[in-house]
Amino acid sequence: MSCNETAHIVAARFDDSLSPRQRRLLDEHVAACAECRDALADTQASAAQLRQWQEVPVPQWQRVPEGLREKQRASRPRFSFWTQWLPLATACMLALAVVLNVQVQIGGNGVQMAFGGSTQAQDISAQLAQFEQEQRTAQQQAMQQLAVQLEERQTTANLRLMETMVEQFGESTTRSMEQVLAYFEAQRQEDLQLLESSYQRLADSDFQTIRSVQQLANYVQYQGGQLQ
């Protein structure tokens, strides 16, 4: 006797989703139907034979598809973008800061930023000029004081030097003066003698002159008398 339910009975036996009631009805049918019982035995034997299959390890292969790898690569530039452009952006910012004369000051009031020539810079320049002027004045005063002190020291030194010189050369100077006076006296005596002799010669010369004049007068008188 052929059972029309065998295929369904066999299929139901391989179905894990049967309810307890369905499973009980199945068991009752299989117990009563030899064909289904034999068919179940055969299919279970076949299934057992198939389950002898041993899992074969998967060979090495490219698991990540190219599309996903490209997507992954495309997502990386987020990092490399910054590493690529960050130094350039920093350099531009610094250049801009230099051009705009940006001044950053960190103090008790926090961070202060100023652009262009700030009043603070002007204040600093004025303070520097004042400081320079004060320094210059102070240097001049110091130089004057030094000059005065130096002059005093030099005067004192000169006096001391003169005193020392006078002390050292006083005696020799006295002697030299005496020698000079003696020399002068000798020269004066010698000049007096020379002067006396000159006067004498002049007197002698004058006497001769007078005699010549008298002779000339005599001659003139003689000549006059003859003419008359």
Partner: peptide, 11 residues
């Protein structure tokens, strides 16, 4: 189900 049963019987 029928295809399965037929296949298992053949096996």
């Amino acid at each position: 189900k029928t295809r399965f049963y037929t296949a298992m019987k053949l096996l």
